[in-house]
Amino acid sequence: MAKSARQAQIEKAALYPLDWTEERTGLVGYTKWFLFRHVPRDVNWMQTLGAATLTAFLVQAITGVFLAMYYKPDPNSAYESIQNISNEVTLGWLVRGMHKWGASLFIILMFLHMARTFLFGAYKYPRELNWVIGVLLLVAGMAEGFTGYLLPWDQTAYWATVVGININATAPFAGPFIAQFLQGGAQIGPDTLAKFYSLHMLVIPGGIMAMIGLHMYLVLRLGVTSPPWSKTAAGRPRPDAEPTGDRTGLTREPSSEETS
């Protein structure tokens, strides 16, 4: 008896911080709801691609923060700072390598995640807007690829960007203005590099994070779909001629007359 009272006391003490937080924020309840909400029982391995894409993005965000501590966005020192990160900084090569290859993986995973959504027909009602956000995320991800490619300031970076900006310039109406804005001068130089750096680490990632937030909010609100080939898919049509109690009685009547 005394032991259980003591146990209850410990339990209460342990849970006190949670209760305190819950009372003031409601976040404990939300977390519980998030963790224990039901998903269709037949979800497929392919439906982990969204989480995988998110992970790739987080890798980019974290390694990007560390790269920004050592990278210098100026034509006179950018190339040397990349060499420094690759050769001198402790584990700098790993962080840069993860950022470079993580970018490719992020793009691949976005495409695979999109292919899964297409295959499942999961972009249909009520998830239309989440498909649109997903396509915008894909575009933003490729814009990250384009702006990040210039930053090492080597020959490939420089000349690929020359062509990229020229491609922008061929667009009708807005094209020349976009190209002039990106380049920021008579030729690709310090202004271009600073602009690309700002877009690459502030503007586009900010947009991506906001869109990921919205994307995931809609996933939680609307739920994930069952694979369309599943026999037990959530939302499957109900067997329409299921006899109810009343009907059973009605259909049985003639047979009972026969026997009597």
């Binding site: 224990f36 909400r37 039901h38 998903v39 269709p40 029982r41 779909t225 959530a234 109900r238």
Partner: peptide
């Protein structure tokens, strides 16, 4: 129907 099925037959995340 989807929501009903998930609530009834689904598994926790």
């Amino acid at each position: 129907r989807y929501k009903e099925d998930v609530a009834k037959e689904g598994k926790p995340f």
